[in-house]
């Protein structure tokens, strides 16, 4: 769905739902995930509906995702770090306490 206009060097690897994904250090995490076809980011805590980024500027809180085990992390406000573990977030009743 999303395609880069120009190629950038990919200097790190992040782990998305257990699989290695090449990425650029410091890049926008939500953009990186969209580029790699990660969809959805999470399932809503109450409705269990699939959700994905909408505003990409930190306002809509729809890009929430698990980052290194930390729930409800805003993907669009997070920079890529080497070795970062990113997982699709299940509704809270299905998550481990």
């Amino acid at each position: 769905m999303f395609k880069r206009l120009e190629t950038v060097s990919q200097d790190v690897v992040i782990i998305v739902n257990g699989a290695p994904v090449p990425a650029r250090k410091g890049a926008n995490l939500a953009a990186t995930l969209l580029e790699n076809g990660v969809m959805p980011f999470r399932f809503h805590d109450i409705s269990a509906q699939p959700r994905a980024p909408y505003c990409m500027i930190g306002k809509c809180f729809d890009c929430l995702i698990l980052v290194d085990g930390r729930s409800n992390t805003q993907g669009c406000m997070t920079a890529v770090r080497d070795g970062m573990r990113v997982d699709t977030q299940r509704p809270c009743k299905d998550r481990e306490a």
Binding site: D45, I46, S71, N72, C92, K93, R95, E96, A97
Partner: peptide
């Protein structure tokens, strides 16, 4: 707080976990 998995089964005088987590 943000919604979290159920951990507090009974309400207390200072904290309770609401239905949505």
């Amino acid at each position: 707080t943000e919604r979290a998995p159920r951990r507090l089964e009974i309400p207390t005088n200072i904290i309770r976990q609401v239905q949505n987590g």
